[in-house]
Design a binder for these strands. Structure first.
Length: 947
RNA sequence: GCAGGGGUGGCAGAGCCUGGCCAAAUGCGACGGGCUUAGGACCCGUUUCCUUUGUGGAUGCGAGAGUUCAAAUCUCUCCCCCUGCACCA
């Protein structure tokens, strides 16, 4: 079928009819918003996961009579667009080839050294892509996050946050490129490595006979009392310097250069590492005299370039000492153990021989590693892991404490007595900036933060969350932890596009923080369009969003027409009552949580979000879509190639909300086949007969109404995988069976296809619309009423009976194939229907799930009468009951009588006969002459194949 | 490391909340057959093992233990995988 033609036709019809434009009216409102796209790339099919899921909800709600608003805007603030422009300017080949992958012409790429142009180009492209995908968006409300009128809104937001005391000032470590002199994040580094910043404790070891210290950075300050010596790198250059006026300290020259982004560093002198070897110092806790040694593993660019050596707890330290000994250096060092392992139940440590030097044990554990360095790394990791979980201090002053507690206490003790200080390091060093320089840690003073750590604010956010529906519900826990976890968030940056930070005009508001409330702005963006942004003073938004002040006063002071202000207020009040927010799962820990916080802080409770929906991503043939793999499917190209609805169904309904969905050609073909089948049937209804409804017809009605019932509850919860399977795949199966079973009834098929088409509409709107019109309807399926189930037509009995027919056929086929193997050809088949007393026994067994009770009943004459066992059949009944005793737990609930079953099979005999290619007769067990009559069970007639 | 989500048949993926018609839906793949000049599409069958004029049995849902008349489903322990971890959209 020609999807493209159908897609375009209905997109145009919808557009012309304006059915997706939402305006205030008397119906119940429902507003759906999605994380707006960042305008530095075209859409690929992965985007449709989130946008499409939101669209499904919007379309579903629309069909349920809600007045739906699904708006869209564009995100352009922040640094990526600037970086993008710069890369184009520098002729970055990777970026250019990536853009070409999306089919962007050279003539356009050339112009992209201008950030403005990038934003406008992709804004157009993305909108076109969304339109091409049939998203039911009200485009009249679109805006870009860099627009002046939106900036005014953001300024209002931050002014209000500040007045509530949620903005604070402090110091903060960031990844920093000393060469480019700016903060760097993941997208600024080679291999897109995220600079992981960790805090270490730098401990000062007083040098004997000199007013100076060795400054050792360590992750494990709790082991300091086990320090037996100091390691330096003999070949490196060290610097004697003060940090923030303290010291003087010896640290490596390289580290002194990077630490100046954290401290005021005053260089005093330089000295070679080998010269340090003659010095000694004191352990700050135990007072032990520590020699200085050359450590083979010491890297002068890590930490401070000086390491405290704890051989008992650090495999590297132990190994370095052994190495020195082996090379003939005179070393007299006894490892000192500071903790022991308790509570590990595998018993290994009881038997271990190196109890005084635990690190030896761990080295032994990984001795199979060929590479010594890898062995030591593995040993270090394992030892730390064990000691973290099971370690208990034995060192004086901290005995009995767990590792974590001891670490905290010792750090505190050392820091408060001036013997140590915090320093930040790049944990995954080296992280290299795109410019080629190693990234260091810079502590930014006077940084502005949103204080998400504020207790009252957290409580507000929690209560907002409690009042919200979260889909899928199982992700609620993630939100709860996110609210607990989120703390200070830097909010002003030196660079990037965006809104100036009201408290410091030299800064730009960070781009995730400026997009936490923009959903409100949709309700008024179309009304404010054309108004001079300068008029949008805070009191305007106070009035519109908070209902503060009087219309006249605000109109007068702002200079904005009172009618406009009034409509804005009404629009906000109307739409923002019920909002559903959609995003991908990875935004739970930042955007979505910030969204909750900001809404709960700024708006009245009645305008807090009502629902958040999160979804997984899209894989392409099992792989994550990535530029390097070249497996990104651009959205428009995908829609053109496979058909919009095929892509939509695949991506949206291909997986559970929370898991990743899979895009593959094979699956696309599968969807295509089903959609084509439905369309084909719809076109053939006219040629079908009508007549009296038979068993088969009631079966299809039962299936249909059951489907409507369950599918509706599934789509309510956006369980779209199950929904899609039931509405698309199962429907096709059911229709096929129905048609092959006998004369299809036009009315029944029409009812079925109509309901299925309407339910399919949110997922596959274009094809549904087409089918709907093929069936002779004039109005849009998209605005049609969602089908409601007729529960009275749902019948377990009818469905069980049809299932019985299918099973008779498949069982008979099996028997026939066995006969075939034996070289016998079937002549005719007799189906023998089980007696009613067997049904009584089944029912009893099903109800009681206790065969003894049933047997007891058969044993009494009253029981026999109750069960309808004819005289003389007691023995047979008891034997029968015991024969089914084994499967007591799987005895079905039988509703049909023998008479009914007989009629059913008789009526279906021609169908069964046709399926088997053999004559079929049906008889009652008590009247049957078949030897196999006794084998008949309720719903499982005995099949006697005569040869 | 912390937090969240997972581990089901050749593969993908239901089922798990609310234990029992679950040898486990559905799809894909594979194999055999039909249709066809042939291929595709379509249709039928098989796809853990054993048994077989059938509706029977064994094993079985990451590993182990437990609760129960009964466990893929409930409890505990362990192993493994995925995602996120902040100034970055």
């Amino acid at each position: 079928m020609d999807y493209n033609e159908i897609d375009r036709k209905w997109q145009k019809e919808w557009q012309d009819a304006g059915i997706f434009e939402g305006d205030v009216n008397n119906n119940e409102p429902y507003m759906v918003t999605v994380a707006f796209p960042y305008v530095n790339a075209p859409l690929h099919i992965g985007h449709i996961r989130t946008y499409g899921t939101a669209d499904v909800l919007a379309r579903y709600k629309r069909m349920n009579g809600y007045n739906v608003l699904f708006p869209m805007a564009f995100h352009a603030t922040g640094t990526p667009i600037l970086a993008f422009a710069k890369r184009i300017k520098n002729g970055d080949k990777d970026l250019v080839s990536e853009l070409k992958l999306f089919g962007i012409p050279d003539s356009e790429i050339e112009k992209m050294s201008d950030p403005e142009y990038i934003a406008s180009y992709f804004t157009r492209e993305i909108e076109a892509g969304m339109r091409r995908t049939g998203l039911s968006i009200d485009w009249r409300r679109k805006f870009v996050s860099t627009e002046p009128m939106f900036s005014k809104f953001v300024e209002w937001q931050f002014g209000l946050l500040n007045s509530k005391g949620y903005i604070v000032k402090g110091r903060h470590p960031v990844g920093w490129c000393p060469n480019e002199n700016q903060a760097v994040g993941m997208h600024d580094t080679k291999k897109d490595a995220e600079p992981e910043i960790e805090k270490e404790l730098a401990i000062a070891f007083r040098i004997d006979g000199e007013d100076a210290y060795f400054l050792c950075a360590t992750y494990r300050p709790e082991t300091v009392s086990g320090a037996t010596n100091i390691f330096v790198k003999a070949s490196a250059v060290y610097s004697k310097c003060t940090l923030n006026g303290k010291g003087p300290f010896y640290i490596s020259k390289v580290s002194s250069a990077s630490l100046k982004y954290q401290f005021a560093v005053e260089q005093l002198s330089e000295i070679s590492g080998s010269e340090l070897l003659s010095k000694s110092c004191q352990n700050p806790v135990t007072g032990l005299k520590l020699p200085v040694l050359d450590g083979f593993f010491v890297d002068d660019s890590l930490g401070t370039g000086i390491v405290m050596s704890v051989p008992a707890h650090a495999p590297f330290d132990y190994a370095a000492i052994e190495k020195l000994k082996a090379s003939g250096t005179h070393v007299e060092i006894t490892p000192i153990r500071v903790m022991e392992i308790k509570g590990k139940e595998d018993g290994k440590e009881q038997a271990e021989p190196y109890v005084d030097v635990p690190s030896m044990k761990y080295m032994e554990m990984f001795k199979s590693k060929t590479d010594e360095y890898a062995m030591l790394e593995a040993a270090t990791k394992q030892q730390y892991r064990d000691e973290f979980h099971y370690g208990h201090m034995i060192a004086e002053g901290y005995a009995g404490m767990g590792e974590a507690e001891a670490k905290e206490r010792i750090s505190h003790d050392l820091t408060s007595s001036g013997k140590a200080m915090d320093i930040y390091v790049i944990a995954n060093h080296p992280v290299v900036c795109r410019c080629g320089h190693s990234v260091v840690v810079k502590v930014v003073e006077d940084q502005w933060f949103l204080n998400y750590g504020n207790k009252e604010w957290k409580a507000l956010a929690k209560s907002a969350l409690d009042g919200m529906s979260i889909l899928p519900e199982k992700s609620r826990k993630a939100f709860e932890s996110a609210i607990d976890w989120i703390d200070l968030r830097a909010v002003a940056r030196a660079q990037g596009l965006g809104t100036r930070f009201p408290l410091d005009n030299s800064k730009i508001i960070e781009s995730l923080s400026d997009s936490t409330m923009y959903m409100c702005f949709y309700t008024i963006s179309n009304l404010l369009r054309g108004i001079d942004p300068q008029l949008l003073k805070p009191e305007v938004f106070d009035y519109i969003l908070l209902g503060k002040g009087s219309l006249d006063a605000v109109s007068k002071s702002s200079g904005i027409d009172g009618q406009v202000l009034k409509r804005c207020r009404e629009s906000f009040e109307y739409w923002y009552k019920v909002t559903s927010r959609h995003s991908a799962t990875e935004l739970i820990f930042n955007h979505l949580t910030m969204y909750i916080f900001n809404h709960s802080a700024l708006l009245e409770k009645s305008y807090w979000p009502k629902q958040i929906v999160v979804n997984g991503t899209v894989l392409s043939d099992g792989e994550k879509m990535s530029k390097s793999l070249g497996n990104i499917v651009p959205l428009v190209a995908g829609a053109e190639k496979y058909g919009t609805d095929v892509v939509r169904a695949l991506v949206i309904a291909g997986a559970d909300l929370f898991s990743d969905s899979e895009f593959s050609e094979v699956a696309a073909k599968g969807i295509d086949e089903r959609l084509s089948y439905l369309m084909d049937i719809a076109g053939r209804i006219d040629q079908m007969e009508t007549g009296q409804l038979g068993h088969n017809d009631y079966w299809l009605y039962s299936r249909l109404n059951r489907k409507i019932n369950t599918a509706t509850s599934q789509i309510e919860k956006l369980e779209l995988r199950g929904f899609g399977t039931s509405v698309l795949y199962d429907s096709v199966l059911e229709l096929r069976r129905y048609i092959s079973r006998g004369e299809p009834n036009a009315i029944v098929v029409k009812d079925f296809v109509a309901a299925v088409t309407l339910m399919l509409c949110p997922i596959a709107p274009h094809i549904s619309e087409e089918i709907w019109h093929i069936m002779g309807n004039r109005d849009f399926a998209s605005t049609e009423k969602w089908p409601s189930p007729d529960l009275s037509l749902i019948s377990d009995k009818v469905e069980d009976e049809e299932k019985e027919i299918d099973e008779v056929i498949s069982d008979a086929k099996r028997v026939m194939s066995l006969l075939d193997r034996a070289g016998k050809a079937p002549k005719s088949i007799r189906l023998v229907v089980a007696e009613d007393w067997k049904r009584s026994i089944y029912r009893m067994a099903h109800k009681s799930r206790n065969m003894k009770q049933v047997m007891d009943l058969i044993g009494t004459s009253e029981g026999q009468a109750d069960l309808g066992i004819p005289g003389g059949k007691e023995g047979e009944a008891a034997a029968y009951a015991s024969s089914i005793a084994k499967r007591i737990n799987s005895i079905p609930d039988v509703q049909s009588s023998q008479e009914e079953e007989h009629t059913l099979l008789n009526d279906a005999a021609s169908f069964i006969s046709k399926s088997l290619g053999c004559k079929v007769t049906v008889e009652l067990a008590q009247k049957s002459s078949s030897k196999r009559a006794g084998n008949a069970h309720p719903l499982k007639p005995s099949i006697d194949v005569e040869t």
